[in-house]
Amino acid sequence: MVAFEEIKVGDTIPPLTKPAITHLQLALYAGAGADHNPIHVDEQAAKAGGLPGIIAHGMLPLGFLGQLLTLWVPQSQLRSLSTRFVGMAFPGDVITCSGRIAGKREHAGEKLVDIDIAAQNQKGENLQLGKATVALA
């Protein structure tokens, strides 16, 4: 169990590298994520929209960032999750999620840790830069 007292600002949490994004995964996410925008499954539609080709749903790497956090602490301790989508993910990309402790505070009787989180592709380019807050005992 992760303990509040043992966490220091600047510590990193265990990173998560996901298997390469596949077209099948984007089709599954289009269905389960209820996002039927054709730019995620149809090459021609993506190009007609001015994109270089099919792009992943931004919510997919954000889902990976959620997993990064729930692998670290039980989900019931997650208080907030936010991100800016700063780069696009494409089929074949291998995404690595990471987190660094940015602050510790107490609020409404809870011991909270703020974490800077990022999702990067295999070239080390940032795709998502975000923040999360978890409650620790």
């Binding site: 730019i39 007609a48 929209g49 997650l78 907030s80 936010s82 989508f85």
Partner: peptide
Amino acid sequence: DKRRAMHGEQSFDY
């Protein structure tokens, strides 16, 4: 047109 729309930011407070 949905093809010109992209997700810019997203946050969740639980």
